[in-house]
Each structure stands twice: as C-alpha cells, then as structure tokens.
Write a protein that binds this DNA or RNA. Structure first.
Lengths: 140, 140
DNA sequence: CAAAATTAAATTGTACACAATATAATTTTA
DNA sequence: TAAAATTATATTGTGTACAATTTAATTTTG
C-alpha cells in the first residue's frame, strides 16, 4: 500500500471534513434565522456593502452563477434581497438588501461569538487555522 | 457594522473556500479515473482495508448513509465496489473492492504528488495546515 | 460599422451533504 | 420471551457546487 494514499496522510481530507464540521456547528444558529451557511455568507458580504452585482458576490465568495443564481432567487423569495438588472449594462444584475435583509444583521451579531463557544477552540488554534488557510488560499 | 461579521474576519470561510479550491485542483486528475473527490476518499479507505461496512466508511469519512448509499451505488454501477448484506446481521451492508477497484489504486499512486505540484504549496505550509486541522477536527 | 470575441447571468444536469423519516433487523429490558 | 429501544441502511426532500451550455448584451477588431 502506497503510504501517500492512506487517509491519515491526506492533506485535503481534514480541511474538507473540518469545513463541514464547522458548518454543522453553525446550523442551529442559522436555523433560527432560516438561513443556510452559503446564504449567510452572501449576507455577510451584503452587510458590508449593501448593493453588489452577482459577479462581485461570486468573486468574494468564490462561487459561480450556477450556484449563486438559484441561491439569490431563494433569498429574494424570502424577501431578504432584491434582484434588479442594471439599466447601464443589461447583462448585469444588482443584488441589494431589503429592509428585512438589513434588519437580519442585528439578529446575526451574536453568531460569531456563539460559534466560538460551540466549537470550544482555543484562540491560538483559531488564529492559526485562519492565518494558514488565508495564506494558502491567497497563493493558490 | 459589527467587526466580527465582516467576511475577512470569518474563521470558517477560508477553510470552506480552501476545501473547495483543493478539490478543484484534484478534479483534472480524478477526471481521468472518472471519480469524484468523495468517491476517491471512499476508495482511499477501501484500499487500506478492502472490505468494510457502510457504517465504518461513514465514521472514517464523517458521512452518513444519506450521502454514502447513493455514492456507493454509483461506484457499484461502475463495477468498482461490490455491495452485499451481511448474513450474520442483515442490517449491515459490506462494501468491498472488485478487481477493477483494486486495480485503480495503481493508477491513483501519482495523485498525491501531482496534487502537491498543482497546489504549489511549500511543505511547511502543507504540514502546518494538516496538523492544525487534524488537531481541531479531533477536538470538536 | 458589422462581424467576431467577450462578458454576465441563467439554465441544465450530475453529484454530493444532511435533516427527517422509514424500514427492517437485532438487543435490551420488563 | 414479548414489547420497547436501538441500530444499520435506505429514502425523500432541500440546497448547494460546479461543468457545460445557452442567451443576451457589450466590446473589440478587421
């Protein structure tokens, strides 16, 4: 058996499994807002800048229109975002927050702290995980 | 705007994005074997021990039967694994490698090395990423 | 300027993930 | 030992991901 093919020697597996595990920890908190984790990410980006194109959202979240279009339509259905085509360039669709979408931010403020408690990770580990994955993400 | 709700302050996002990015780097190599990344993970586990229950696979990969059952049926369709109910306990389904499934291991031997080249990461970063995510995964 | 190339979103199709539930078999317990 | 609880897998339904293609609009180029 080739040593490099053993599960415990895989580099991607713990990253993949950890991402899913953290998302599972988010679930009870996001359930209360009736949001999925990717929907929450879209809102994080919109709370920073309330009107953006699908393309801008996609670049920040590294997601394409095949993922975002249906996700954004679901957020629109819920009355959280508005979708409107640019008049200047009709290929472009602007996504903006509704009042309801803006109001959700208040309900979400406690989530980061709640998540840290739920994960029960040390601050050092948290910082190390974030900095190494940020660094690698930037490089690849 | 609450500082903790900014995308660049999220701890999970880079992990989630990096996992997807690494899987995208695997894609061209796995395409040649006509495997998806989760299917490849199942084979890694089976190459270590060629006959296991669905439950054992699920524990090692942190996946439930809702994910594994259809995935394993697809691998069975391709002639890579065999599925058979235990006679001792008819609730249990054993998954084992076919000759074709065993033969795939040879074709996969170069993948770990190819992936590292594709990612072009330093060995230190790779080791740091793996050790911190292994550590956190164990703890949560 | 008109044809060709590019761009932005949407659509289609396949394959995960996972919650919730169902089914059937085995263990536990009263 | 029969009913209750547990266990293993399967099924159903929703929501991503992403490749490939389509559509429509804009830019570039001959």
């Amino acid at each position: 058996m080739t040593e490099l093919l053993k599960l415990q020697n895989q580099m991607c597996f713990p990253v993949y499994a950890l991402a899913r595990e953290i998302i599972n920890h988010y679930r009870p908190m996001l359930d209360e807002l009736e949001l999925t984790y990717p929907q929450y990410l879209v809102l994080l980006v919109l709370w920073e800048q309330e009107k953006q194109t699908v393309n801008q959202l996609g670049e920040k979240l590294m997601l394409d229109s095949g993922t975002l279009t249906p996700l954004l339509k679901r957020l629109e259905q819920k009355g959280i975002v508005k979708r409107e085509r640019s008049t200047a360039d009709e290929r472009v669709v602007f996504i903006s927050l509704t009042e309801q979408g803006k109001a959700l931010e208040t309900k979400a403020t406690c989530i980061p702290e709640q998540l840290m408690q739920s994960l029960n990770m040390s601050m050092e580990d948290m910082i190390q995980l974030k900095s190494i994955s940020d660094k690698i993400l930037k490089a690849v």
